[in-house]
């Protein structure tokens, strides 16, 4: 009753929606970089939104299933192959015990999410199953997956079972080792950019007025490039240097996911899932929460253009994303026939 890691991929970790409520103890939030892909993957297999999934980075793992599982993959296209056949993204797939799922390199995007019905059953640490790699706790043994690891799965709930049963009933070719749903979430549901230059919405930060007029113009009009020193903690960006009108010594205070801070080098850093809880550099802006998935799918050398928005616009976009997710959930419920009896 488990999932066996044949090869771990480049950097594969267990993540959920994050570890909130402990930042005052200095504990990082962690969680999926692309929370939207995580939530859709969980929806597709009938999991609760905060179930733990695998986050795959640039090159995915090879996994053997030691039980029948219902899986869904969202996010980057790592060309997953299940027993020699391509596995399509954004739909539930029922997989037979003994099957091997192999991911390759990301053809587009950076991070893929593998959700399995029941979720990955790693211990809850401070109310979350997310991996804190730096502090070595949470997730699977507080680290990225390694060869020969075995991960257990949670017990499937009613929704998981109903989805699996429906797939079984509609399966055309029972000889196959897996059966895919004939319905799926279109890739256009996600906000990922079509071309290389992504646009993310940014609210001006508390210290944005301390930057020179030229720097502010540059920040809002010139694309910045993601540097190779970028990871789950934050992306270091390359582009026009951002200068302050005069040097300031700020007193450290809380920072959040999407905070864009500017150290003395003048090269901005976007803080992300594994960020520290407090920081002392001037904050020129904050990425709208709904656009963090766009950043999560960018890779080193990709470019991003910041677009100035108001707090109102950012929160409005948040509501719209929640509405789209709720509609998706309702759609799945209806398709499954019979309203859920909860």
């Amino acid at each position: 009753m488990s999932v066996e890691v044949i090869s771990p991929g480049l950097f594969t970790t267990v993540q959920d929606l994050g570890r909130y409520g402990y930042q005052r103890h200095g504990v990082h939030v962690n969680g999926a970089m692309d929370a939207l892909a995580l939530r859709v993957a969980n929806l597709l297999v009938g999991n609760e939104p905060d179930a733990a999934v695998l986050e795959l980075t640039m090159k995915g793992p090879a996994l053997r299933f030691h039980q029948d599982v219902l899986v869904a993959v969202c996010g980057a296209d790592m060309q997953p192959v299940l027993d020699e056949r391509r596995l399509r993204r954004n739909r539930p797939v029922l997989v037979q015990s003994g099957s091997v799922l192999r991911f390759g390199h990301a053809r587009e995007g950076c991070r893929a999410y593998l959700a399995i019905a029941g979720g990955f059953d790693v211990p809850l640490v401070m109310n979350s199953r997310s991996t804190n790699v730096r502090a070595k706790f949470g997730g699977a043994w507080g680290r990225a997956l390694a060869e020969t690891d075995r991960l257990s799965l949670g017990k499937p709930g009613k929704k998981n079972v109903r989805l699996a049963r429906q797939l079984q009933d509609r399966s055309v070719n029972r000889a196959d080792s897996f059966c895919e749903a004939d319905w799926f979430v279109p890739q256009s549901f996600f906000p990922y950019p079509q071309q290389k230059d992504a646009v993310v919405r940014v609210m001006p930060g508390a210290e944005s007025e301390l930057f020179t007029a030229q720097s502010r113009r540059d920040f809002w009009t010139t694309p910045y490039q993601i540097s190779v020193q970028s990871d789950r903690m934050g992306y270091r960006l390359h582009g026009p240097e951002l200068a302050l009108n005069e040097p300031v010594e700020l007193i450290s205070s809380a920072v959040s996911a999407g905070t864009i801070q500017v150290p003395p080098s003048g090269m901005p850093i976007v803080l992300l899932a594994d960020r520290q809880t407090v920081g002392g550099y001037p904050k020129i802006g904050h990425v709208a929460t709904v656009d963090l998935p766009i950043l999560a799918q960018l890779r080193p050398h990709d470019r991003v253009q910041f677009q100035q928005v108001t707090l109102r616009a950012a929160q409005q976009a948040w509501y719209e994303q929640e509405k789209a997710l709720a509609e998706l959930e309702t759609g799945i419920e209806l398709y499954l026939g019979g309203r859920s009896k909860r």
Binding site: Y20, Q23, R24, I251, A254, S256, Q315
Partner: peptide, 20 residues
């Protein structure tokens, strides 16, 4: 969601859906 005390600030995280 939570609060984070600093040197001169208290930062409070909230859920914009709950306060819509």
């Amino acid at each position: 969601t939570e609060y984070v005390p600093g040197y001169t600030t208290v930062t409070i995280y909230y859920d914009p859906l709950a306060w819509r």
